[in-house]
Design a protein around this nucleic acid. Structure first.
Lengths: 350, 350
DNA sequence: ATGAAAGCGCTAACAC
DNA sequence: GTGTTAGCGCTTTCAT
C-alpha cells in the first residue's frame, strides 16, 4: 500500500509547446502571459490564441527558470527566531494574506542559539529569497545570530523587516509593531479604575517590546498620580516557571493588590502562584495579561482579562512593508492599535 | 533612517569565476563542489585549488540555476491545512531537524476552506517543491481541497506525506502518526485506576485521529469490564465553545465522575464548565486531556493530566518518510509512542 | 583526469 | 505587432 512510489511524470508544459500550438514564438508567449508590451501591444487575436493554448495545455511557468532569468525568486524568507510557543500560524496567515495576492510565497527557517543560523545564511546566499521577515525573540545573547542574518541579507541586497517583538533597529530596515505602550497603559489604567493602587509589574528584561509594556505601566501610574514602587517592578526571562516562582515569592514579601503581566503565559503562571499562596483572584489580587491567546485566556479561572495582540494584522503589515522595500516604495509603517479584552481576572463582573 | 533602501549588490559569485581563479573549467568546478566522479576521480591538486578558490570568493551556488538544471528544488512544501491554534512551530522544528542536514528547506502554505488552495496548487505546479507535507485538520467538508493538493502533486509526480492527525489514505502516500489509541487507552485506564467508572468521552466527529482516541477509550473500558454508556460518548466539532456547552449540559443531564477529552483545548474548556456547574475537579469529576500543551496544562487549576503529543518527533518522522519516498527508499514508518503526563486533574496528589 | 558544449525554461533587448 | 537571439548559473554527456 505504501510501497509503490508514485510514477514521476513531471509534466513540464513549456513555453515552447504553447508557442507551437499557438503558432507564435516563445517570446510572444512570454509577453502575453506576463502582460508585458514589447514595446507595442500584442494583437488581440494572437493574445487569445496564446491564452487558449496555455489553458488547454494546463501551462504553469517553471519557477526556477523564471527566477534564474529574472533574478527574483518571488519568495520571502520568514526567519522564526527563538520562537517556541507563540502563535506562529496567526503571523503566517497575516503574512500570506498580503503576499499571496502578489504572487509571493514563504520559505521558513527556524533559528535559535544552537541551530539554523548557517543554514539560514545559506538560504539567503543561494538566492532563495527576495526579502526577509524576522519574527521571534531577540535576547542579548542571541543578537550575534541576528547580525549574521542581517549581514548575509546586506551582501545580497535584501531588505529585512521585523514582525512583532520590536527588533533593534541595527538588524532590520523596519519593524511592524503593535502599540505595546498604549495597550499596557490601558490595561494598568483599567486596574486603577478598579481601585487597585499597589500594582505589580511582571516584566521581561532586555526586550524592547517588554520595555515598552513597562513604559505603559509607568505612564498609567503617572497619570493617576500613583508613585512607582520599584520593588513591585520585577523583570525576568519570560518563562512561566520564573513567573510562577517570583509571584509566589512576592506574596510572601510584599503587599500588592494587582498584577500586570506582560504576556498571557506569564499571567496564567502568576495566577496559579497566587492561588497556591491562598490568594483569591480577583478579590485579593486582580490580574491582567497581554496577547490574548484566546483559547487559554477564556478558560482560566477566572477568565483572563488581557490585551489583544493582533498578530495577524502585524503579519499583514510586515509583509506589506517588506514588499514596499523590495519595490523601493514608501514604507507605510504604523503602530498597530491594540485593545483591552475584558474578562474577569481584572475584577469586572461577567 | 528607514527611507534609503539598501543598495543591491547581488553578489553572485558564479562557477565561472571560480573556474577562472582555479584555472579549470566550469565542469570541473561543478564536479569538485558536488563531489561527483566523472567517471574518474578528480586529482587532489585541482580539488584543492578549486576548493580554495570557492572559499576565497565566498561562493554559494545559485539555487534557481541548480533547480533548473537538476529538476530538483531541494524544497519541500508544508501545507498547513485548516490549522489555527495548534503548535505549528514544534512540527516545523521537527521537520527541519531532519530536512536541513540533507540540504532541504521548507516552503509553507496555509490553506482552508476559503483560502489558499489555488495558490498552493500553483506552488506545486510551478515546480517549487520536491515533496509535500500535509499537516492540520481534514474535515469532511474540506476534503475536496485535500483532493486538489493530492491531484496536483500526482501530476507533478510528488509524494505527499501526512504529519499528525492521520489523513485519510486516499490523500497521502503515508502519514507520520502517533499512537492515539494506545495513549487514550492509557489515559482512560488511569482514570479507572482512580476508581472512576462513569467516564465521559469528549470526542470529535469525522476525524480519524479522534476516532482512534475514542477507540482507546473503548479499549480501556472493555479491559476493565466496564460497559460503554453511549450517552457518555459525545462527539463534536473540536471547538472549545462546544466543549464548554456540552459539558455544562452533561452536568445537568447525566451522572459521571470523569471526563476524557481528546484535546487539551477541549479539556480546559470542559474544566471551566465543570466549575461553572459547581463541580470540584478532580473530587467530583476527574479529567484528562490529550496533547500536553505544556504552557497551558501546567497552569490550569488543578494542573491538567494529559497525554504528551510528540509533535516534534512526528515532524522528524514525517520529513524522513517524505525524503525516503523522494529517493525511492523504504518508508520507515512507525507509530510514535506517547506517554501520560500525570498532574492533578486526574486525582493524583502533587 | 579534465574540458567543451548543449541545454534546463524563461526573459528581455533588439531586429524586422 | 512579432520573431531572433543571447543569456541567467548550473549540470552532465561525451570527447579527449
Amino acid at each position: 500500500m505504501t510501497s509503490g512510489n508514485p510514477q514521476k511524470p513531471k509534466r513540464h508544459v513549456t513555453l515552447l509547446q504553447i508557442a507551437d500550438v499557438a503558432q507564435v514564438s516563445k517570446a510572444t508567449v512570454s509577453m502575453v502571459l506576463n502582460d508585458r508590451p514589447n514595446p507595442f501591444p500584442i494583437s488581440e487575436a494572437t493574445r487569445k490564441r496564446v491564452m487558449e493554448a496555455a489553458q488547454k495545455l494546463g501551462y504553469r511557468p517553471n519557477a526556477a527558470a523564471k527566477a534564474l532569468a529574472t533574478g527574483r525568486s518571488l519568495t520571502i524568507l520568514m526567519v522564526a527566531f527563538d520562537l517556541w510557543d507563540e502563535n506562529l500560524i496567526a503571523r503566517l496567515r497575516g503574512v500570506e494574506a498580503h503576499l499571496v495576492p502578489k504572487g509571493y510565497s514563504i520559505r521558513v527557517c527556524t533559528v535559535d542559539a544552537e541551530h539554523g543560523v548557517s543554514f539560514c545564511a545559506e538560504l539567503i546566499r543561494s538566492g532563495q529569497a527576495d526579502g526577509i521577515l524576522l519574527t521571534g525573540l531577540a535576547s542579548p545573547q542571541t543578537l550575534p545570530i541576528l547580525k549574521t542574518v542581517r549581514d548575509e541579507a546586506t551582501t545580497m541586497g535584501l531588505p529585512v523587516v521585523g514582525l512583532a517583538n520590536a527588533f533593534p533597529s541595527e538588524y532590520v530596515e523596519a519593524t511592524a509593531d503593535i502599540d505595546d505602550t498604549r495597550g499596557s497603559q490601558e490595561a494598568v489604567d483599567h486596574l486603577i479604575q478598579h481601585g487597585r493602587r499597589k500594582i505589580a509589574l511582571l516584566g521581561v528584561a532586555d526586550q524592547p517590546w517588554a520595555h515598552n509594556r513597562e513604559q505603559g505601566y509607568r505612564n498609567a501610574l503617572a497619570e493617576a498620580g500613583i508613585p512607582v514602587d520599584p520593588e513591585l517592578i520585577i523583570l525576568g526571562d519570560r518563562s512561566q516557571t520564573w513567573a510562577y516562582d517570583v509571584t509566589l515569592e512576592l506574596t510572601r514579601s510584599h503587599e500588592f493588590d494587582a498584577i500586570f503581566a506582560v504576556t498571557d503565559n506569564m499571567a496564567i503562571a502568576a495566577m496559579a502562584a497566587l492561588k497556591a499562596a491562598g490568594k483569591r483572584v480577583p478579590e485579593d489580587c486582580a490580574i491582567i495579561g497581554f496577547d490574548n491567546n484566546a483559547h487559554i485566556a477564556r478558560f482560566t479561572d477566572p477568565p483572563l482579562t488581557t490585551i489583544e495582540n493582533p498578530f495577524y494584522d502585524a503579519g499583514k503589515m510586515a509583509a506589506g512593508m517588506l514588499l514596499n522595500l523590495i519595490d523601493n516604495k514608501p514604507l507605510g509603517a504604523e503602530l498597530l492599535p491594540v485593545s483591552l479584552v475584558v474578562r474577569q481576572s481584572c475584577g469586572c463582573k461577567h
